[in-house]
Amino acid sequence: APHITGMSFKEVACDDPEVEQVALVAVDYLNQHLLHGFKHILNQIDKVKMWNRRPFGVVYELEIDTLETTCHVLDPTPLANCSVRQLTEHAVEGDCDFHVLKQDGQFTVMHSQCHSNPDSAEDVHKVCPSCAILIPFNDTSVVHTVKAALDAFNAQNNGTYFKLVEISRAQNVPLPVSTFVEFVVAATDCTAQEVTDPAKCNLLAEKQYGFCKASLVQRLGGEEVSVACKVFQKQPQPASVNTAGPAPAGDQTETAALPAAPPASLVVGPMV
């Protein structure tokens, strides 16, 4: 291709209304492509450059900071109604680079790359010395708490047997020894009262997910488990899996049991 002289970008204000619109498109794209964990919300636009694209349109090169919300990516709650995870809950931030094309008034995400990091434990303890700190999902206390919570939930549930899909968050505090977990479950073709071998229970074709929060506290008299789950409406299985579309949730269920991933990884699907 011939060398094009004069290629340059234009400096734009980060709080420019159109840049904010581009950032919201980018965050929406991020949430639609997250394979697990929680939805993220825009916190700050760090940098922006606007490039003219030949023959038409402009490309926004954007750096944004996001924050984790309390809504899981499978939760149908609109992002606007999701709460930001507070510092006392050990907040997680995301750093993202996006290239967004604007052409004929339409925005198209051309490139995205995100990383996420939890706040440091030291920073959390500065604002809240007794607050729980994030721990890895493969910690034995986490695995034990999730199993105890899921067993308790299924024992109280006369209907469908729910299977673990993903551990989404895990925290602990030393005194009293307590573990707090958040995890995703899915309905199976087994009934909770009759299940003998959970491995033989299959997820329903029309996926029904639930999001659970549980805690396990070590007391003198033994363990105290509490669990609360919110079951979402059934999600019809798409006719064909589009690799560039929203998270193919059906594929996660077989591999995501007791994941050992760090608690704050921002995994996005294939790029366009």
């Binding site: 980060c14 709080d15 919300i41 636009i45 924050l67 510092l87 990091n117 706040d119 920073d123």
Partner: peptide, 27 residues
């Protein structure tokens, strides 16, 4: 007559274009 340089006809402070506002809190 001595005049402090920069006091006559000086432009006001230019607001930085970026980064933008923090919507929630910084980590």
């Amino acid at each position: 007559k001595v005049v402090q340089p920069g006091t006559v006809g000086a432009a006001g402070p230019v607001a930085p274009l970026c980064p933008g506002r923090v919507r929630h809190f910084k980590i």
